[in-house]
Amino acid sequence: MIIVNLAGALLIALIAWWFWFYKSKSSTKLDDKLVVHVEDGVYQPARIKLDSGRATTIQFVRKDASPCSATLEFPELNIIEELPLNSTRVIALPALQPGEYAFHCQMQMYRGLLLVE
């Protein structure tokens, strides 16, 4: 049982690390061609790097018919937009201060992050 309990504890630690404490270093630089796909429960790419102090736009293409994916929210920026299915929706971002800005769907199942540097 000790092994089973140790394995369980390790599994819990792995869950906490993978979902909460892991700091991904990979991110995609935002440029004019960048498209965020909304499909299969995720934003792809989900970590987007952009320069501070410059207003810009991001194109979102929703291919997931699930109603959960239909609403896109940037809570800190007070942006809430409907994403039409199989269409491009251009989201205008204001000039931002350096920092991290989350974006997600209405139920927070789709999650992404803007890394402003």
């Binding site: 993978w18 979902f19 892991y22 991904s24 299969d40 429960g41 995720v42 934003y43 792809q44 989900a46 699930s66 959960c68 139920m107 199942m109 789709y110 999650r111």
Partner: peptide, 19 residues
């Protein structure tokens, strides 16, 4: 299938959802 694909892609993204 849609639950499993969604779960796997979320997992790779270090996020978890209903899927």
């Amino acid at each position: 299938k849609h639950f499993f694909v969604g779960a796997w892609k979320s997992f790779l993204n270090h996020s978890a959802n209903m899927d």
